[in-house]
Design a protein around this nucleic acid. Structure first.
Lengths: 343, 343
DNA sequence: TTGAAAGCGCTAACAC
DNA sequence: GTGTTAGCGCTTTCAA
């Protein structure tokens, strides 16, 4: 029951009620050592009776700690990012840390973020989700003077949690190769449609090329078709492929979202999957199972959880100097991939 | 360029450099009146030269304002919620307010939120996205002593931004009726799968029934089939419908996500849409266009923006006492609905 | 228009 | 173990 909220109880009120000094209240409530169990109990009772909640502003000012971590995402509306943030959120709140959310939105937003550094003086740590940073940005982040952990990329001096995109892509392509495919195309998001400079598209494109070449297949720019990121883009990219003279027998999509779009286009065109053409995605999006999409899965939410845990470690000083965690990917075979159709 | 971050400049440093008192610095930097333009310029220069950023903790403690708003969502991974948060985020950051994110996650999380009230003393306002509140919860929120705005529901004494779910549903059903359909089923999410007590499923179910009955059609529980919320659930619900003896000629899905699942099942079953069966969704999800889904659109991101704006108004005192905004919905006809097939 | 002074409500040495 | 004493870095009367 909350006392009529007029003026919140202060630490002094609690101290008086418990018959101790404010510092003892502070120590008791924060679970510090050097407080007798009896006193602690008395203090806790008094605090509960007064519905006491310490003023964050005051304790931040006095201690210099904010008990807050900043979480920065490019677009929080993207499934992947939202999932990572949710993972981080659960760990952070579990640890009684506040989560300050920052959504970059676009290139302008990103620039604003890095030169205004709105997190300045208000967080103890920062989590950047899929925001690759150049040297200047690294310096800016350092200027915050707090531990930084990256998800989805890595950078010298910062902790990071990610997958191996090239290796994941290789798994996808090898799956297609094993099925006998030789004419394989990739659908991926456009660079210039990527004002935020994600590293993922590039890495996956590289992985694609390397794996093809490594398998002794020829590779040319015509094997890659680009479109804006997303379901829509995937659909359009597949249209482009259909319009070309030599249809591939298999398509690797940079992300499941793009694969969804591709599948849609194929369906409209009446091309059977996988009988006529195979499609494989990447990420194992929550909808991949429903549309029976073969894909490369990666732990998404866990990356947020692990990143947050790294941050907690850094804050409690039992840090091993900017850990770099690489999480596993694996092939999930479903119904959209099959043997190369006979010529 | 940021000075070597060692010890951040304080207001006193700025004051000294500008040759004025700290209070003048404070006034200048916050754009208060009663500061000569010349002085203000001098202060701003000094501040810039020292890369001065006021300590939020100190100013919060001194002023009693946190310049922070708490944003609470049930599941931030759901497209709708993420979209609303993104809308709110842009408005809030534009106004230099921090955004403290809280994700309820499940029933336990929700309970924890309401009885621990982790936002206590740390926000100037709260935005609840699709969290209907009962009397106790209303009281708890009041206890925070800050303005509260709800998105997706409304409650006495709180501002709110939402759509008229019943009316939106009526539009969907009328569209089907106009196409000649008489056997119309609804796919909706299960109550007991809704630990958070969303109001939406209920309202849309009511709207469905009312519109059918209003049109003189009979209505029975067999017209509604439930499944867990989401694409998967929609797919399963449609399977149930297919298994029943009398297939409807049209289906209204509570949400586009569920409609996507339904479409998938229909596709697998080889039932042509809309030749054999029409499907209409609700929300106008970003993927609705790609799959050509007829649906009822609602402004999603704008609801977050408007809600945040309401909060800003409340904070700047030009509040009109808990405004209730109802935003419009409209029918978007695409390819999944068509005339009732001949008997 | 500006400055001086008194807090805001905690935490952290340091003493006992 | 516990209390005393200074701050932490701002904002805000109140005077000038």
């Amino acid at each position: 029951m909350v006392d009529s909220a007029e003026a919140p109880a202060s630490i002094i009120d609690v101290a008086r009620r418990a018959g101790v000094s404010p510092s003892t209240v502070s120590r008791s409530l924060r679970g510090m050592p050097n407080v007798s169990e009896a006193t602690r109990q008395r203090v806790m009772r008094a605090a509960a009776e007064l519905s006491y909640v310490a003023s964050p502003a005051a304790s931040r000012l006095a201690s210099g700690r904010t008990s807050t971590v900043g979480v920065v995402v490019p677009f929080m509306t993207r499934w992947f990012f939202a999932q990572v943030v949710a993972g981080a959120e659960s760990v952070l709140h579990e640890a009684s840390l506040d989560l300050l959310l920052y959504n970059l939105g676009d290139a302008a937003g990103r620039e604003r973020f890095f030169d205004r550094l709105p997190l300045q003086r208000r967080v103890d740590a920062v989590l950047l989700v899929c925001v690759p940073v150049d040297d200047d940005e690294r310096a800016a982040l350092r200027g915050l003077g707090v531990p930084v952990v990256l998800v989805g990329t890595s950078a010298p001096g910062f902790g990071s949690v990610r997958i191996d995109d090239r290796e994941g892509t290789a798994k996808a392509v090898r799956h297609l190769l094993n099925l006998g495919h030789e004419r394989i195309a990739m659908i991926c998001s456009l660079d210039d449609d990527d004002p935020l400079g994600f590293a993922t598209p590039l890495l996956r494109r590289q992985g694609f090329e390397q794996t093809l070449v490594g398998a002794g297949l020829e590779f040319g720019p015509e094997h890659v078709v680009g479109a804006p990121w997303g379901v829509d883009g995937g659909a359009r990219a597949m249209e482009q492929l259909l319009a070309s003279d030599r249809l591939p027998t298999a398509v690797f999509a940079e992300s499941d979202e793009m694969a969804f779009g591709a599948l849609w286009t194929l369906r409209r065109a009446g091309l059977e999957v996988p009988a006529r053409i195979s499609v494989i995605g990447f990420d194992d999006h929550e909808m991949a199972g429903v549309v029976d999409l073969t894909t490369i899965s990666q732990p998404v939410r866990p990356q947020g959880e692990v990143a947050a845990t790294l941050l907690l470690d850094a804050l409690t000083e039992r840090t091993d100097e900017a850990a770099e965690v690489v999480m596993p990917t694996h092939l999930v075979v479903r119904g959209t991939t099959g043997p190369r159709p006979p010529r």
